[in-house]
Design a protein around this nucleic acid. Structure first.
Lengths: 206, 206, 206, 206
DNA sequence: TATGAATGAGGATTCATTCAT
DNA sequence: TATGAATGAATCCTCATTCAT
């Protein structure tokens, strides 16, 4: 599996992602945790404050509104996912490895250190107003373009049977849903899970 | 694709599903629509009342609480899905057809008349308290058992490469996610979508 | 102790008190019970309906409002108390016996068949609007006059040390409060309780 | 009559009773007033807010619920009553004076500065849930024990004719009921009222 | 930057009462 | 006389946000 740790450190150093030691970083981590656990709407700013040890009123020195916190959680994950996928693909030198990179990177985000934020990105979409939704969407374009391109190459190599634009969505759904049922601590390793996904995605006999 | 209409009429006649012409049925339909559109938490009982043309206070003659409305939406879908899958499988006489029945039935619910309620079942899980979650889960056991059994048979027939317990979740995720991106009115028909899903699920060259 | 039963039958025959077999009578009894148990404000018309086996809407064929039910409960008890005290005093031929009649009659109401209604009369005063309060007060004048007159006679006979107007209120309070602590099923009989009250009220050594 | 003022100041300094100048103290005083005047159920949180000059929502920064406000009113009175009775009894060196201390202390609470809170304690019992009722009851045990003990001593001194356990309840009722009819501004002074109560309680000719 | 008291709009829910059937 | 669906105002309470300290 790709190692996200080093990459995150670089992004933090670049200021593209908040330092988890900073007040802002702690707050975003706490928000990701609670938003994932209880949902955005069901999480109060008081809960948020309690999680980081300040009063709710003080949150508004760091963020203008609750929704901006949600936006912060989502947009940092978007940046990190793109960087991670770009790095992973740069090391995949043939179509099969590239498809595996797509899958492994997404799984690393869904189940690794950033799992909370990733789940929030995937499941709290509606809580964002449309202007912020559009911003996030713009931020994800490059990520989706890499998927599209990679799957297209796989198709030309005869690896996949389904049209890339549909296959992308189907795989994406399968991976997203693992957040609901898969436990990294169980019998199946993350690598094993990636293998199964790859097996399903590719039209080759094992 | 399986026809859900006739089946629903039978369930309504049996009293297992609310008559859409009754106050209760209208309310559940309106709730499914709004809960799907805006989310359970963001939908107010006033919205609900306005949608069916009564005042919010009057809702409570039909349901004890807002959460009970959510529960009503979910549990009726659960009943209908099980009945539909059972019917579809009874007409599938070989493994491949049976797997297609799994996929086609789920897609029929996700994109057919019951799409709102189905989406609510899949995406508003957390809004239910744990006791009601357990009830729904119990109601879905038979449905999941049919999936498991069908995929097992397909495995024994050499049709699938991934272990049934994982494959079930992966396909389920892929199908669920179609609610987000697939539009029945677009270029791809529901049957075409089912074909792609089947192609991905099975380890056979097309 | 005075027997209230026969007296009540006479009042019912006269139409001054509702027949407990009639719908109105049943409703008043149920109301007395629930108002006493849970308080007027905390008792809903639904509770009331459930207690007598009809729906809440149907109550309003018998009474114009919830408050009118409360008024009905109170005013019937007022009528009965006056009649009972008048009867009891007519048989008391000397001051000491007359004072005992005051006490025993009030205790009979507080702890006998009419205990619920009596408790409601004493403790739900505030729930009545002022015009109805005045009506009840008028209805009780004769009752209080008998107390006053009896205690005055006892004073002239040297039986009591405290001025009648104060003594009346003090005894009244002591008796009223027995509703809170005294249980007829306990070690002390109602007659025994009356003896203690009399002992306290009179300035004579036992 | 015992002077409650100094005692209250001490309890406030000790933190056992809220400072009437603090938001919490003001709120409790306002609540006592309104609960007494209109009853707990008939007093809305809006009324409460209006009485202290804040909006109803702001109440919930100081108390978790309306019932907790009621509980606050009651429990502070309970604490103060016990302290006051203990102080009064410590200065009563013979049985007759001790019985008078019982009476005078209770009357001081029912008609003095704390009259609202005391009335609420006595008359809004039912509005408390049973767990909080139990807490209050526990808090009153010591108070009732002092009554019992004092009356027992009076009995042994031949001062009272009725058994202490009954006499306690009868006197208690007589005193409680003075809240309904006695006005300190009238012809009878509080001391005079205490004299009458004592006279009634004791089996001695004046 | 943090506090904590206050805001004020809005939340779900309750309930006496009405009325067509 | 009874039903049961609906009303509509009122209830307690929640919560994101503000702001003086």
């Amino acid at each position: 599996m790709p190692q996200i740790g080093a990459l995150l450190r670089k992004l933090i150093a670049d200021g593209q992602v908040s330092d988890p030691a900073s007040p802002r970083g702690k707050l975003l981590a706490a928000a990701a945790k609670l938003f994932r656990q209880n949902g955005y709407a069901a999480t109060t700013v008081r809960d948020l404050g309690a999680e980081v040890g300040i009063l709710s009123g003080s949150l508004f020195h760091h963020f203008k509104s609750k929704e901006e916190i949600l936006f912060g959680v989502m947009s940092e994950v978007v940046v990190a996912m793109e960087a991670a996928l770009r790095a992973a693909l740069s090391e995949a030198h043939e179509p099969r490895a590239a498809v595996r990179a797509l899958i492994a990177t997404e799984l690393a985000f869904i189940h690794g250190k950033t799992s909370n934020a990733t789940a929030v990105l995937l499941y709290e979409w509606r809580a964002l107003n449309s202007s912020r939704q559009a911003q996030i969407l713009t931020g994800r374009e490059a990520y989706f373009a890499m998927w599209q391109q990679t799957l297209k190459a796989a198709q030309q190599a005869g690896l996949v049977a389904v049209e890339p634009e549909y296959l992308r969505q189907l795989i994406h759904g399968a991976l997203t849903w693992t957040a609901v049922w898969y436990k990294p601590s169980g019998a199946l390793s993350l690598d094993g899970l990636a293998d199964r996904c790859l097996l399903m995605a590719l039209s080759e006999r094992p």
